[in-house]
Design a protein around this nucleic acid. Structure first.
Lengths: 201, 201
DNA sequence: TCGTCATTGGACTGCATGGTCCAGTTCCTA
DNA sequence: TAGGAACTGGACCATGCAGTCCAATGACGA
């Protein structure tokens, strides 16, 4: 695709964002290039001009973009998470991203589900976003342990994975009901791991 | 489709099970009727003979069948869950169903994700399986509360939803890694809700 | 002003797929 | 044992979709 001018970059970005919206609403299979063409007022040739690899490359670009957006939506809290208040602020930002902004599904989680099989490159991108996300959460848990707020015996990586799972699983349940309560219940329960400075049984 | 003879029932069942396997491995979009035809050594006309509604009806039949199988795989523990040991046995059966038998994804969860949009009837079937499942878990939590094993102040429905979320979310993370640890970590963390007879903060 | 390269438009192709149709076979039953 | 209904085989059709091609247009530097 050689060089991109300013106009080119904007067109490309417009395609990526519209495709992301369509995928979130209808899945990869439910997103045809003609849909994208219509939504972006572009032409077939432009799609292949900016994404010579075709639909697969376009979807990968969407995965990268959405991954960045997802993590960005959790800032600045995601980089802090050193106090219970910071965790609560993070939680609020996350729920707003999913529910408040009407997504009702995780752009990355749905990609993980639909395309983990069939496109290893895409799976790697998705896995990488999960990895970055989990490492931030684990770092937050360690900060909580550092100040004695959380049991030092807890494994931060396991706690981070369980919180991430609560988010993804909560969305699976919330989506068909179109009700945020399963997501919030799962998230709250998972965050209780931060409320146990002492050990048990 | 009028009456079904024994042979007819078996052919129909063979189609449902093969379709289920294919959907689990490749998703609905990745499952063509020709795939099913080849895998079952049947013909196009048989598919439409047993499922006049076409692919959509076939997928719905798969959802019903898989829902039943999923709950059945958790028996008899799912109907007990009155002791910590019973919960552990249930957990083991569940992990075996997903990992031990090589599924690496939830048949119902993946349907929920891919088709919740676009087929309200299918979404209703999926939601119903989740409802049945959650109600069994909640009943187990209540039994634990009844014998004083679990804090009576906990909301059994919220605990059940969080456990279900841990399963679904854990699978989302485990699937691309092809490693059961996120599922197990999420499940264990969620089950810790059963280990707190006393209240917190 | 000219040339070149990024950009855009849209017709066209080939193929996979869901779905239809009808003829042939098997099986139950009266 | 005959008739009808359930069952099976596979050719065929229509369509939607990813991907190709080429010509036209716009922008920017020399």
């Amino acid at each position: 695709m050689a060089e991109l001018t300013e106009r080119g970059r904007r067109t490309r970005q417009r395609i990526v964002e519209a495709t992301g919206r369509q995928i979130l609403a209808a899945g990869i299979g439910g997103t045809s290039l003609d849909d994208v063409r219509a939504a972006t007022l572009t032409s077939k040739s432009q799609l292949f001009h900016y994404f010579p690899g075709g639909k697969a490359e376009l979807v990968r670009a969407v995965a990268e973009w959405e991954g960045g957006e997802l993590l960005a939506a959790q800032l600045p809290h995601l980089e802090d998470l050193s106090t219970r208040a910071s965790w609560e602020a993070w939680r609020a930002a996350l729920v707003d991203y999913y529910i408040g902004q009407g997504r009702w599904a995780c752009p990355i989680g749905s990609l993980a589900n639909e395309a983990a099989v069939g496109d290893p490159e895409l799976a790697a991108l998705v896995a990488d976003t999960f990895r970055q996300w989990a490492s931030r959460l684990a770092a937050g848990v360690r900060r909580m342990q550092g100040v004695g707020e959380v049991d030092a015996a807890a494994d931060p990586d396991r706690v981070a994975a369980s919180i991430l799972s609560a988010i993804q699983g909560g969305l699976v349940l919330s989506q068909p009901l179109h009700d945020p309560w399963p997501l919030e219940a799962a998230l709250d329960q998972a965050l209780h791991a931060l409320d146990a400075p002492a050990v048990r049984t």
